[in-house]
Computed example of a mutant assay.
Amino acid sequence: MPADGGEADKRHAPATLRNRDAIAAVLADWLPAAGTVIEVASGSGEHVIHFAAAFPHLDWQPSDPDPAGLASIVAWRADAWLANVAPPIALDASASDWPVDRADAVLCINMIHISPWEATLGLFAGAARLLASGAPLILYGPYTEPDVPTAASNLDFDANLRARDPAWGLRDTDRVKSVARDAGLAFAERRAMPANNLMLLFRRT
């Protein structure tokens, strides 16, 4: 992992500016009052910086499996000067061993549909290892839902993802909930979000 990240290392995800405030509004209801939040697949790092500023009572641990993503997080963190954002760690959600051993909440934004299914399995297994009873795993992104018509834009997005990589694609919420149950996490709440996205809350049983 790079120790320093400069301006040239910063990645920009335009969707972050559009969705970060809506996500933060839900996080205000779902995050614990104190403790450490591990963000899995932090990407550019823009989300974690925004949330750390919005929730200064929490400590934030960004992570990503991509060296370029880690460099971007380092660069954004260096600019933000936020004491509650830890240096990012290299973390592959699908791995059976994560470089952390506990968390008070786990957050994962826009990973499940752009990663192999093994990453989703690993995400729930890892969250189950880290979280105490009642602690939250929070997901954000596009999904398909039984008995709920899928927006045309999401169908197009799903087709585009699968054309890019057959292992990618929008996941069915019932299948995700089944994985959660098997891992020891109970589905707690669903929130509809702008642009046909969802936030899903699971809690460690």
Rank of each mutant, 00 (worst) to 15 (best):
A24H: 08
H12V: 12
R18A: 03
E7Y: 11
A22S: 10
G35P: 03
R20Y: 05
W30E: 07
G45T: 10
P32G: 03
E46W: 05
G43A: 07
G43F: 01
T16A: 15
P14V: 08
L17A: 15
S44A: 08
H47G: 10
L27K: 02
T16Y: 04
A34V: 11
E7V: 13
G5R: 07
P14I: 09
H47R: 11
K10F: 07
E39G: 06
S42T: 15
P32C: 06
A13P: 06
D29R: 15
A8W: 01
S42D: 11
L27E: 00
P14F: 05
A15E: 08
G6V: 05
L27N: 00
I38C: 09
W30M: 06
A8Y: 07
G45P: 10
A8L: 10
V40T: 10
A41W: 00
T16G: 08
D29C: 12
I23F: 02
A15S: 12
A41K: 01
A24C: 12
I23N: 06
G35Q: 02
A33M: 08
R20G: 05
A28C: 14
I23P: 08
T16K: 06
H47S: 10
G5Y: 02
G6K: 04
E7N: 12
H12S: 01
E39K: 05
A33Q: 12
T16N: 09
V26T: 11
A41S: 09
A22T: 07
D29I: 10
H12I: 12
G5D: 00
T36E: 06
A24S: 13
S44Q: 09
L31F: 00
P14E: 09
A8R: 12
H12K: 04
D29S: 15
P14T: 12
V26Y: 08
H47I: 10
V37D: 03
A13E: 03
V37R: 10
H12W: 01
A34L: 07
P32V: 01
D29E: 15
W30S: 05
A22V: 09
A24V: 07
V26R: 15
P14N: 08
A28H: 11
I38Y: 06
G43T: 00
G6A: 06
D29N: 13
E7Q: 15
A13G: 04
V37Q: 08
A34E: 13
A41M: 03
D9V: 10
N19R: 03
D21H: 13
E39C: 08
D21M: 08
P14D: 09
A28Q: 15
W30D: 01
V37F: 04
L27D: 00
G5M: 00
N19I: 04
A25C: 09
D9G: 12
S44G: 01
S42Y: 14
I38K: 04
G5Q: 02
G43N: 01
A25V: 09
P14A: 10
G5I: 01
V40W: 11
A15R: 03
A8I: 11
I23M: 12
G6D: 01
A13V: 11
E39A: 04
V26D: 10
D9N: 13
G6W: 03
E39Q: 05
E7W: 09
V26S: 12
I38V: 15
A28I: 11
G45K: 13
G35W: 01
E7D: 11
E39N: 07
S42H: 13
V40H: 14
V37A: 08
